[in-house]
Amino acid sequence: MTFKLIINGKTLKGETTTEAVDAATAEKVFKQYFNDNGIDGEWTYDDATKTFTITE
């Protein structure tokens, strides 16, 4: 399955996707992406659209 990440950061904005077997696996991938890029904020997940959103 394809999961999308929408980034609404102070310095970084955009979208990316990842292929994962489930939302929990995608969450781990995206959290690592947050850490690697110094993004910290509030994030949500919409199961209907398989979209994670992080807002700094």
Score class of each variant (00 low, 15 high):
residue 36 D to I: 10
residue 23 A to T: 05
residue 36 D to Q: 11
residue 7 I to Q: 02
residue 29 V to D: 05
residue 44 T to V: 08
residue 4 K to D: 02
residue 2 T to N: 05
residue 3 F to I: 02
residue 2 T to V: 13
residue 29 V to C: 06
residue 39 I to D: 04
residue 29 V to Y: 12
residue 19 E to L: 14
residue 38 G to S: 11
residue 17 T to A: 08
residue 33 Y to T: 04
residue 35 N to Q: 13
residue 27 E to D: 03
residue 21 V to R: 13
residue 39 I to H: 04
residue 32 Q to E: 10
residue 9 G to L: 15
residue 37 N to F: 15
residue 54 I to V: 15
residue 22 D to I: 02
residue 19 E to I: 14
residue 20 A to F: 04
residue 7 I to S: 03
residue 2 T to R: 06
residue 15 E to M: 04
residue 18 T to S: 04
residue 34 F to Y: 14
residue 26 A to C: 02
residue 14 G to E: 13
residue 36 D to G: 11
residue 49 T to V: 05
residue 45 Y to R: 00
residue 33 Y to V: 04
residue 24 A to I: 09
residue 7 I to K: 01
residue 31 K to T: 05
residue 52 F to L: 01
residue 54 I to Y: 13
residue 43 W to A: 02
residue 28 K to R: 11
residue 25 T to G: 08
residue 36 D to M: 08
residue 48 A to M: 10
residue 43 W to T: 03
residue 14 G to A: 14
residue 11 T to S: 10
residue 40 D to R: 13
residue 42 E to R: 08
residue 4 K to Y: 11
residue 8 N to Y: 11
residue 56 E to K: 03
residue 50 K to C: 05
residue 41 G to R: 04
residue 28 K to C: 07
residue 1 M to T: 12
residue 18 T to A: 07
residue 12 L to G: 12
residue 45 Y to M: 00
residue 28 K to M: 11
residue 5 L to M: 06
residue 9 G to T: 15
residue 31 K to R: 14
residue 26 A to H: 01
residue 51 T to N: 01
residue 21 V to E: 10
residue 32 Q to H: 09
residue 35 N to S: 13
residue 22 D to N: 07
residue 30 F to M: 03
residue 5 L to F: 09
residue 12 L to A: 08
residue 16 T to L: 15
residue 9 G to N: 07
residue 55 T to K: 05
residue 35 N to G: 11
residue 16 T to G: 06
residue 35 N to E: 15
residue 48 A to P: 07
residue 34 F to K: 11
residue 50 K to V: 02
residue 2 T to A: 04
residue 10 K to R: 10
residue 7 I to F: 14
residue 56 E to N: 04
residue 3 F to W: 04
residue 32 Q to R: 09
residue 7 I to Y: 11
residue 31 K to L: 10
residue 10 K to C: 13
residue 51 T to L: 02
residue 50 K to Y: 09
residue 10 K to M: 13
residue 22 D to K: 01
residue 12 L to I: 13
residue 47 D to T: 06
residue 19 E to G: 03
residue 27 E to L: 15
residue 24 A to M: 10
residue 35 N to C: 09
residue 49 T to Y: 03
residue 25 T to W: 07
